[in-house]
């Protein structure tokens, strides 16, 4: 059973990490593109107005300006919604930030279908894939408040570009104050021998619930929190896949190019085992409530459990 620790916003975690960073390091500069209330960078602005720059509704300018700031020695956190930070400003992120390995940390909120009612134009379902394609970019999708907070603090001192995807809704809390984030190290949350479930973001919680469902049916699922999509923890994933012989990936993102895509690439080259990718099946999003959308697009714990069952049936 998963202990109930309530729910919290990963965006709040971002704001708190920024305040802590800004307090002790004068190189920290925070930028936004007219979404400071939503991304929560507003709290940094209130405390350190001289180190906060709002570019207005101009995400391309946000990213290229961030690159220039980083070129003068700043550690820049640049925020917008995941759709605009990665989609609209892709060229700026690729060519002006990442190509020169500049210290810009893109922390984007509102990733995934869980944006909800705003609908397709605001539901980034390919942001992780876009960022993962860029050489040298680190990509992290935190599962809860504490993981988000620690990932942000880690990003500040890992040289070069970094992408962190935050959510709109509150995520179930999984960890606690003492949580230690390790970039590039998948975290074993539940050991098992029958099937491996790899998850990131809000789907980590759903995977743990799915593992409970499966346990009641006599299936021992191993759950790994793959918070770092790049660099991917190949060793841990291959070891688990070798043990169970079946892998399910779970993400609030397109099954193309994100966690599922990365794992498919890895397994097909190094350890071809049956794989099922839970995520958005190459479709655009739609408006709706978060719970309704999770059901509609097949992201509930029951969907994850069913994906695992289908693999188990296949190998009987």
């Amino acid at each position: 059973m998963i202990p109930d620790k309530g729910t919290r916003h990963t965006r709040d975690a971002y704001a708190e990490a920024l305040l802590e960073l800004g307090e002790k390091d004068h190189r920290i500069v925070v930028m936004d593109a007219d979404l400071a209330k939503s991304t929560q960078t507003e709290r940094f602005k209130e405390r350190f107005p001289e180190r906060f720059i709002d570019c207005g509704v101009a995400e391309q300018n946000l990213m290229a300006t961030a690159a220039g700031l980083a070129a003068t020695g700043k550690i820049v956190f640049a925020s917008s919604f995941a759709m605009f930070a990665t989609g609209r400003a892709y060229d700026q992120v690729r060519n002006t930030i990442a190509y020169s390995c500049l210290n810009v940390k893109i922390c984007a909120s509102h990733g995934g279908i869980t944006v909800g009612e705003d609908g397709s134009s605001h539901q980034a379902l390919e942001d992780v894939a876009l960022m993962r394609l860029i050489p040298g970019m680190k990509v992290v999708v935190p599962a809860d408040y504490y993981e988000a907070r620690e990932a942000v603090k880690t990003a500040a001192y890992v040289d070069g570009p970094f992408y962190i995807r935050l959510g709109r809704p509150k995520f179930p809390v999984l960890f606690d104050e003492g949580y230690r984030f390790q970039l590039g190290k998948a975290l074993l949350l539940r050991p098992g021998k029958d099937v491996t479930i790899l998850a990131c973001g809000i789907m980590v919680y759903n995977s743990l619930v799915a593992a409970d469902i499966l346990a009641r049916e006599g299936v021992e699922a191993e759950v790994l929190n793959v918070h770092t999509i790049k660099p991917l923890d190949e060793e841990a994933i291959l070891a688990s896949a070798a043990k169970t012989g079946r892998v399910v990936t779970c993400e609030d993102h397109s099954v193309l190019g994100g966690l599922g895509g990365a794992v498919a690439e890895l397994l097909s080259e190094k350890l071809p085992v049956p794989l099922k990718r839970v995520g958005i099946q190459d479709r655009f999003g739609v408006s709706g409530g978060v719970e309704e959308l999770m059901e509609h697009f097949g992201l509930t714990p029951e969907h994850v459990a069913e994906a695992a069952r289908s693999l188990l049936r296949r190998s009987l």
């Binding site: 001289e50 290229a64 300006t65 980083a70 003068t72 002006t96």
Partner: peptide
């Protein structure tokens, strides 16, 4: 070379970023 460029329409933004960064540092 102070900044990598090539994809048009980005260098001036980066120059703004540099100017802002230098101003913050009182450089």
């Amino acid at each position: 070379v102070d900044l990598s460029t090539g994809s048009l329409g980005q260098g001036l933004s980066a120059a703004c970023g540099m100017a802002l960064g230098l101003r913050i540092q009182r450089n």
